[in-house]
Design a binder for these strands. Sequence first.
DNA 1: TAGATAGTTCAAAATATTTTGAACTATTTT
DNA 2: AAAATAGTTCAAAATATTTTGAACTATCTA
Lengths: 93, 93
Amino acid sequence: MKNVEKINQIAVFKALADPVRLEIVEYLKQTNHEVTCGEVGKAIDISKTSGSYHFKLLQEAGLINARKEAREKYVSLNQKTFNNYVTNFYKNI
Amino acid sequence: MKNVEKINQIAVFKALADPVRLEIVEYLKQTNHEVTCGEVGKAIDISKTSGSYHFKLLQEAGLINARKEAREKYVSLNQKTFNNYVTNFYKNI
DNA sequence: TAGATAGTTCAAAATATTTTGAACTATTTT
DNA sequence: AAAATAGTTCAAAATATTTTGAACTATCTA
């Protein structure tokens, strides 16, 4: 694995190594379409500050797509990143 | 995902979310047979204390098989865990 | 326009993880 | 038997991550 990839790889695993973020990911997988951060936050019962922090980490890891529309931020899973860094991890190292 | 699985899932991602442990895993993947902790530690240049700590976390996550033979501890990757918790993660959540 | 809503940012406090060295057990070598 | 080797354990120190609340920006609603 090259060095830059390794940094991404670690960001991805770190992002997934947390119960709150895992709940976010589960929620996004099962809704299977764009939803607002607020909707997710309410569903899994976390404060908006906490949500903001966790969504940021997921986004920085490339695990979610985010789009700001006016007041609201819409998020969805980035399946490409899951595929590259999770599903194909073992194969690629 | 059930609750017990979630704990394992997080232990697995936590274990993989560290540069030292990722190096260990890379080393074990490419050697592709049992090696001692000492050999790995020398190869990636970490202290034995540090090695002991990191091997313990990998083992607790179920990512490595370990076998003590007299003074030495032989380790290898547990492909089943990689398969269940990494490769099939996205599919299973 | 005032108030409500969605989300971000900041810094402090709380927690968790990692590193380090010394002391230890067990085994092997000289 | 003494010294060397492989690895573990422990506690302290160093770092990193997470949570919290207050203050903030921007947009929407009444």
